[in-house]
Amino acid sequence: MNAWKLRTWERPGMPKEMEGDNRKRRALARAAREQGQRASEAGVSLGSSKQRHHAEHAERADQSGPPPEGAHKPGPRAPMPQEPPQPDPTWPRRPPTIGDTGPDSGSLRLRYRELVSSAAKQAGIDFDTAREAGRATVSVLARVVDEAERRRLLDVVPAELTEGQDLSSPVPQRDAIGFVREVSGLLHCPPEQSRMRIQAVLGAIAAQDPDVLDALHLPDGLAELTRPPRPGGGVVGPDGHTAGLDEDEVQAALERLPDWTGDSRALIRALVLPPDQLERVLLRLDRLKQELGRGPRISRSDEQTAELVVTTTNVGAVTALDVDLAVRVDEAIRQANAGLA
């Protein structure tokens, strides 16, 4: 007889005893229900021991405080998990420090193309020339203010106007004339021309964000440079008065304009072309006048000949703006002759 049979033989009444116990529990459970209780509450259901265990566990879970320490649960001295730092809620625009009247160092930069295009339109120059004027103006402006204002200025102006620039060397003469001369040296152009371009650049900055210039403590005498140039690009000297070029300056300009002649009173270019080609050139010059707000005075002696005269009438002399205009006229003639107009 094997061991299982032996144990069964030794306890022949075990199955009947278990069945009797179950009947008894069911009877007690019915009695409990008749009294408004659940069988598990009276401890008479078949799974009452497990249900009491789960009820006790749920009661412990409802209690406040950390869970009991166990094999897989951290104790009270366990290190807390590291949480990632919260992002700066004020990015990308942070308010300035209380009491600081400078421009917001976290503000968005001025828009580069809009700024340069605006300066070009005001000064009557092309985009590349206006860009170089903007770079020179910003360079000198950064060097006439203190270190804190310089940092705020460079945080706002487009990076394209500051890359590779000298932004720390002091300017010897910190007034309007000194500012204009410094920019003139960087641009390699006459002071009259430089002043007009400075005003155009500063005017374009103010048009986008007036607070940028208003917050800078500019040296006395520089405020006049923040006013936009007069309509039509009126050329003025470094002291703010209208100025013409002297004979030496005109001759130097004529060396760069081989197709022109003249003196300090006017620049002159003669055109002799076939009639249809001449008409195409004159149409292109008329469009140039509409673009710039001024153009050469044109006279014709016959259908193949035209004479172009450039001068600043209210000054009665050649100004730096006239030299610029002569350069633009040459470009327009080359485009028309190439069939581009």
Rank of each mutant, 00 (worst) to 15 (best):
R25S: 09
R113N: 03
A320D: 09
L288G: 05
L46P: 04
A336L: 02
H57K: 14
T312L: 02
H72I: 09
G233A: 13
A39W: 07
P89S: 06
K24H: 15
E132Y: 01
I298R: 12
E149S: 01
R93I: 09
D263I: 00
T97G: 10
W91V: 09
T226S: 12
R197M: 10
A133L: 03
T8H: 13
A39P: 09
A55C: 11
R26Q: 14
F179T: 00
D248H: 04
A204W: 00
G70T: 07
P87W: 01
V315N: 05
L288I: 04
R174C: 12
Q86S: 12
Q335Y: 09
T312G: 01
P191G: 06
D209V: 07
A266G: 00
L271P: 06
I98Q: 15
V144S: 10
V180I: 12
R150W: 12
V212R: 06
E41N: 12
A320H: 01
R334G: 02
D220H: 10
L213D: 04
D259T: 07
N22K: 12
L308R: 01
E83S: 10
T319R: 04
R230W: 08
P66R: 11
W91N: 08
Q37A: 14
Q63Y: 02
L285A: 03
E34G: 04
E132N: 12
L292E: 05
D62S: 15
T8I: 15
R230I: 09
L325S: 10
H72G: 12
E303G: 10
D62I: 13
P67M: 14
R143V: 10
M80R: 15
T312E: 02
A3Q: 10
A341H: 13
L167W: 01
E149I: 06
V157S: 01
D128I: 11
H188P: 08
P210I: 05
R38W: 10
E41C: 12
D146C: 01
P274I: 09
K24C: 09
P258G: 03
L340S: 00
R26T: 10
P231R: 14
A39L: 05
L273R: 01
T137R: 06
R197S: 09
S48M: 10
D100T: 02
L186Y: 02
D211L: 02
G99S: 05
G102Y: 02
P81T: 11
S64D: 07
V235F: 00
I205M: 04
G20F: 04
D324Y: 08
P95G: 06
E114L: 10
I177D: 00
P95T: 09
S105A: 03
R143Y: 12
Q208E: 11
T313V: 13
D166A: 15
D263F: 05
E83I: 06
F179S: 08
A136Y: 02
G134N: 08
R30I: 00
L186Q: 07
P170M: 12
R52F: 05
L115F: 05
C189K: 00
A119Y: 11
V171A: 06
Q35F: 06
P296I: 11
D155F: 07
P96C: 00
M80C: 14
L321C: 07
L110W: 00
R38T: 15
P68G: 08
R150I: 04
L110M: 11
T137C: 08
R284Y: 08
T129H: 13
